[in-house]
């Protein structure tokens, strides 16, 4: 039973990592940038839900969509203001800018809401029993909703016009333009989508961990990044599988070895992946485009 329990908990946290990792991977696929501000968008989403529900008494069903819209908007604005002017410059400049945006968001939230941790009320109250174990409803909702979202995203990318445009821009932006595809709009859409998923992930995360603070995006973001690298950064199924694998690894490490070792194991995976298969599980080993 412990095995099943750890597996379910692993799936829960893994789904959250997967949702966040998708944002890293899609953005990397399309602009070749590791968006280090992505973790902080999660944090902004969490503060938005917290503020609306606990300070403004807005019902959760309204606060969550509001956070998704806010995060999507924020993601698009960050791209337009900070990344777009650097699109033709060195990758390093872009990376440093992303770190700068991350620090900016953390400090902005700290100025507004102070550095004190805030309590985040679980919006999916109640429990369900599987065998002799009790699970929070948040666990069930997280796994079910994340699965649906990921199926929806896969269909969107595979079937719809904008999804195909995303794939073409990620493969060859110049050729995509020659087809009449507006690269700027496609990039904006990708940032909106990734940031919206981050907001959903943040809600699920906060329902299980109940505490939020301005630096909460660091660790969550970093682990989701490891998940994206494990799956093969740039690959959408890779981010999903990578996220779930990291979540399950974490859960089993906590259950069978030691809860203090979970982070070490996760980052150990990053090191091993980078040493053995830097392109990740679904990554393609394509040479740099000339």
């Amino acid at each position: 039973m412990t095995f099943v329990y750890l597996m379910i908990i692993g799936l829960q946290i893994g789904s959250i990592y997967a949702l966040v990792a998708l944002g890293y991977s899609m953005v990397y696929g399309i602009v070749k940038l590791v968006n280090f501000a992505h973790g902080d968008i999660i944090m902004v989403g969490a503060y938005c839900v917290w503020y609306l529900t606990s300070r403004m008494s807005v019902p959760a069903w309204l606060a969550v969509p509001a956070a998704i819209v806010l995060c999507s908007f924020l993601g698009v604005m960050i791209e337009k203001i900070a990344y777009k002017p650097l699109r033709k410059s060195d990758r390093l400049a872009l990376l440093v800018t992303a770190i700068g945006i991350s620090l900016f968001l953390q400090n902005a939230v700290q100025i507004i809401f102070s550095a004190d941790p805030r309590m985040f009320a679980n919006i999916f109250e109640g429990t369900i029993a599987i065998g002799d174990r009790q699970f929070s409803n948040a666990t069930a909702v997280t796994i079910a909703a994340s699965t649906l979202i990921m199926i929806g995203l896969s269909l969107l990318v595979k079937r719809t016009k904008i999804g195909k445009a995303m794939r073409t821009v990620s493969e060859d932006g110049e050729a995509a333009q020659l087809m009449g595809i507006n690269v700027n709009n496609t990039i904006s859409f990708t940032f909106a989508l990734g940031s919206g998923l981050a907001a959903v992930g943040s809600v699920f995360y906060c329902c299980s961990y109940s505490q939020i603070q301005p630096t909460m995006g660091n660790m969550l973001g970093l682990k989701a990044f490891v998940a994206a690298v494990l799956g093969g950064i740039g690959s959408i199924p890779g981010a999903m599988i990578g996220g779930v694998l990291i979540g399950i690894t974490e859960s089993f490490t906590r259950g069978f070895i030691s809860s203090q070792l979970t982070d070490a194991v996760v980052f150990g995976i990053l090191i091993v992946v980078l040493l053995i298969r830097p392109s990740g599980i679904f990554g393609r080993n394509i040479g740099e485009k000339v």
Partner: peptide, 10 residues
């Protein structure tokens, strides 16, 4: 374009 530039993964 030169080099065909078809979308290889589609």
């Amino acid at each position: 374009p030169e080099g065909r530039r078809i979308f290889q993964q589609l």
